[in-house]
């Protein structure tokens, strides 16, 4: 079973979590000033990363909190998890070898 580390509760089975889409998508400060293209980009355009992807997860069947994760989409490996409002961990911690 895939284990995910909740920044609040610790390591838990994937069953307890739901995926919440790409992380760090900032809402425009003044939506009325956006062009249709800019607004559509905020609403709909997402990365389709092959490799490290920053994404939101929610510990639904646990503490209920949203948090962010760096996940390698080619290996479905979680490289780091961190709380909302924190910056993604530095690149060095992204280079971890796959766990056996």
């Amino acid at each position: 079973m895939l284990l995910i580390e909740c920044p609040y509760c610790g390591v838990r089975p994937e069953l307890e979590f739901v995926y919440g889409g790409q992380a760090h998508v900032a809402r425009p400060h003044d939506p009325a000033a956006c062009s249709d293209e800019q607004w559509a980009e905020f609403l709909y355009w997402r990365e389709n990363a092959k490799g490290v992807h920053a994404e939101r997860w929610r510990h639904t069947h646990g503490c209920g909190r949203f948090f962010n994760a760096l996940r390698d989409t080619t290996r479905d490996q979680f490289l780091a998890t961190y709380r909302v409002g924190e910056r993604p961990p530095a690149a060095s911690s992204r280079e971890r070898e796959p766990q056996p």
Partner: peptide, 10 residues
């Protein structure tokens, strides 16, 4: 104590 799952139930 924690919320978790038991089979399909929270």
């Amino acid at each position: 104590c924690t919320r978790t799952v038991f089979a399909k139930a929270q």
